[in-house]
């Protein structure tokens, strides 16, 4: 009787092993096995590529942010209704206000003093559509990550998608004024951002092209 108890499970084990060998011979398995390995390989390369993209995107982000955090940009993205001015980003003299649409108050518009180009005789900066960014786009006091989050948030950026943001950052004359800011009222050239206009534009484009990744810092 004891022997019979041992033989039955061994027989069952044998039958199971044979059926497994059958299934090993199945072509489906072979194909699926190959596919699987291909998939794994291509996932690997996608992952690698996307890692590269993220790294490249972060590099481009660093470069772009050297410009966007510069006073030439932040002075007109203040955390209140008053523009900032100068190398020390003091509050604009004379109690100047951005007003409802950022173009000044009814009888003191930005254009009372600022025209479409720099006035180096008087030391008054100017560019087309000179105005203050809306309060939803306030950058003053934000980290570069917070600036990027605000810039890419349609709730705060006026409903812009990433391509419209790219256009604003690389084509808007008022944004690009930062690289040609003229002289102040003493005739001293205003400081320009630490990255050239060409490198900055290339960085913005690269950042968008590589997925506009914002680092986690």
């Amino acid at each position: 009787m004891k022997k019979a108890y041992l033989i039955i499970p061994m027989l069952l084990l044998f039958v199971a092993m044979v059926s497994k060998v059958d299934s090993f011979a199945n072509n489906d398995w072979a194909t699926s096995g190959l596919d699987e390995s291909k998939t794994i390989k291509s996932e690997d390369s996608n992952e690698k590529k996307s890692e590269d993209d993220v790294e490249e995107s972060h590099k481009a982000f660093d470069r772009m942010m050297e410009v966007l955090t510069h006073k030439r940009c932040v002075n007109c993205h203040p955390a209140g209704d008053a523009p900032l001015q100068g190398e020390d980003s003091h509050v604009h003299h004379f109690g100047v206000k951005g007003g409802e649409d950022g173009h000044g108050v009814p009888a003191l518009s930005c254009n009372s003093c600022h025209q479409v180009e720099n006035n180096d005789l008087a030391g008054i900066p100017g560019a087309p559509d000179w105005h203050l960014a809306p309060i939803s786009m306030a950058w003053e006091g934000l980290s570069r990550v917070e600036i990027a989050q605000s810039m890419t948030d349609p709730e705060r950026n006026g409903g812009k998608n990433i391509h419209q943001i790219e256009e604003h950052l690389t084509e808007h004359a008022l944004v690009l004024w930062a690289f040609d800011p003229g002289v102040d009222s003493e005739g001293t050239p205003r400081e320009v951002p630490p990255v050239s206009k060409e490198d900055y534009i290339a960085a913005v484009k690269k950042w968008v092209e590589t997925g506009a990744h914002i680092p986690a810092e």
Binding site: L108, N111, S112, C113, Q115
Partner: peptide, 18 residues
């Protein structure tokens, strides 16, 4: 200050070409 097309402008800093 004077008016250019009814807008108050600071004429000392306003080039005549505009």
């Amino acid at each position: 200050t004077l008016h250019v097309d009814k807008v108050a402008i600071r004429s000392c800093s306003y080039p005549v070409k505009f």
